[in-house]
């Protein structure tokens, strides 16, 4: 059991790192899915089968699928890859890596000293359900309201209205910025995107 935990953890970390460094969006998405599945395995080894299942169904199954849908709809293609290569310079990693390492050191410092092992037992889905209907009832209701808000918002934002002057403005700004940025890749992408 412990071995499974470590292997799954390693897979998750490596998959996430790979995801971060891909230039192709779809590749990165796939790596993310792998990472999420690995995390599900970790949950199972920790004795939380309910959330393991939830992770797979909701997170990897619904949210990631949503991502894939949208990426496919955006249809970035070859020029997307070029853009990403253009943007992803080595020098850009320094600051965030520095910050992240400081944070990791802080986290390790905070959680030092705990020596409890794993395999302390499984928390049954039944227990989770009782907790949900008991003390966390309000949380459930609020989560449902949140989901409703998200639904309405996504519906409204997804609405592609007819050509409005604002869009014209946006197009002008983007066009000017893209052309004037001196960035040949960006300008080319912009130009390509405009041709229907």
């Amino acid at each position: 059991m412990q071995l499974a935990f470590y292997i799954a953890g390693a897979v998750a970390v490596i998959a996430t790192l790979l995801m971060l460094t891909r230039v192709n969006v779809v590749h990165a998405l796939l790596y993310l899915i792998v990472s999420l599945l690995a995390v599900a395995v970790v949950f199972y080894t920790l004795g939380a089968p309910f959330v393991a299942a939830l992770e797979v169904i909701v997170y990897a199954g619904a949210i990631m699928v949503l991502f894939v849908f949208v990426v496919m709809m955006l249809n970035l293609g070859e020029h997307g890859v070029e853009l990403e290569k253009h943007w992803l310079t080595p020098g850009i990693w320094t600051g965030p890596v520095l910050l992240a390492s400081i944070l990791i050191i802080q986290v390790f410092y905070l959680v030092r000293g705990g020596t409890a092992g794993l395999a302390t037992g499984v928390v049954e889905p039944k227990e989770v359900g009782i907790a949900l209907f008991g003390p966390y009832l309000i949380g459930v209701e609020l989560a449902s309201i949140l989901l409703l808000a998200g639904l309405v918002g996504a519906y409204h934002l997804g609405f592609r209205k007819a050509e409005k002057p604002e869009i014209q403005y946006g197009r002008y700004t983007a066009e000017r910025r893209a052309a004037a940025s001196g960035d040949p890749v960006l300008a080319r992408t912009d130009q390509l995107a405009r041709t229907p």
């Binding site: 600051g95 965030p96 910050l99 400081i102 944070l103 802080q106």
Partner: peptide, 12 residues
């Protein structure tokens, strides 16, 4: 970046 740096400082 600002948020991250700020939180780092705060935790320190």
């Amino acid at each position: 970046f600002g948020v991250a740096a700020g939180s780092v400082v705060f935790i320190v």
